Amino acid sequence: MPEANKPVLEFLQTRRSRPAKLLRAPAPDREALMPILTAAGRTPDHGKLEPWRFIVLEKPALTRLANAIDARGTSNGLAPEDVAKARSQFDDSPLCVAVIEVQKPSEKIPAIEQTYSAGAVCLALLNASLASGWGANWLSGWPSHDTQFCADHLGLSNAERVAGFIHIGTASAVPPERPRPDITAITTWIDA
C-alpha cells in the first residue's frame, strides 16, 4: 500500500475558493508569489511544450485594466451591469495572475491537450495560492474572450488567449460551504 500524504489529501478534499469580491490587500509580494508560480508550473505538460505563461497584474495594472474594460464594454454596447461585473473583478482585486494559453505547433501534442494543460495550470495556481494561506479565485468573463481587448491591454498574440484570471489576496470573509457533486452519481466502475 502506498503511503498517503494525508494533509495534502485533506486540503484537496476541503479546499474552497475565496470569492474575488472578498479579497483585499495585502496580496503576496513578488518573493511570496514565486513559490506559488513555481508550484503551478509543475502542471502536467505533455511534450514539455509549456503551452502557457503568466502575466502578473499588480494594482496599478489592475486599475488600468478596469478602466479599459469600462471603455471597451461601453463601446461594444454591452449592458451596464455586464460592464460593471467585469470591471469589478479588477477594481476589487489586490493582485491577479493572468494564465495565458500559448498554443505551440506540435505533431504529437494536439491543441486540446495544450488547452487542458493551461486549465490545469489555473487550478494548480489557485490551489497553491490557497495552500500558501492566501484567498484566491479563478475568474474569466467577457474581457478574457475579447481578442482585441487582450491584444491591446495584455499584449497577447494571435496564438494566445486567457485561460483564467487568478485573483489572489487576503480573504476578508469565508463564504459558506456550497453543494458539492455526488461522486457516486457521476462515477462509473468498469471491471471487465
Rank of each mutant, 00 (worst) to 15 (best):
M1S: 14
A4Y: 13
N5L: 08
K6Y: 09
K6G: 01
P7A: 09
P7K: 11
L9K: 02
L9Q: 10
E10D: 15
Q13W: 05
R15E: 04
R16Q: 14
R16Y: 09
K21T: 06
K21I: 05
L23A: 11
P28M: 12
D29F: 06
A32T: 10
A32H: 08
L33Y: 07
P35T: 03
L37P: 01
L37I: 07
L37H: 09
T38M: 11
T38H: 15
A40S: 05
G41F: 00
R42K: 09
K48D: 11
L49H: 08
E50Q: 11
P51I: 00
W52E: 01
R53G: 13
R53A: 11
F54M: 12
F54P: 01
E58T: 05
A61K: 08
N67P: 03
A68D: 04
R72N: 14
S75L: 08
N76T: 05
A84T: 03
K85S: 04
S88H: 09
F90Y: 13
C96F: 03
A98D: 02
I100Q: 00
K104Q: 14
K104V: 08
P105S: 12
P105W: 03
P110I: 02
I112M: 15
A118D: 02
L125G: 01
S129D: 03
A131D: 08
A131P: 06
A131E: 08
W134V: 04
A136F: 06
N137K: 04
W138H: 09
G141W: 03
W142A: 15
T147D: 13
T147H: 14
F149V: 06
C150P: 03
C150R: 02
L154F: 07
L156A: 01
S157C: 06
A159V: 02
A163H: 03
G164E: 01
I166E: 00
I166K: 02
H167A: 13
I168E: 00
I168R: 03
G169R: 07
T170Q: 13
A173N: 04
R178N: 12
R178H: 12
R180S: 11
D182S: 15
D182H: 11
T184V: 05
D191S: 11
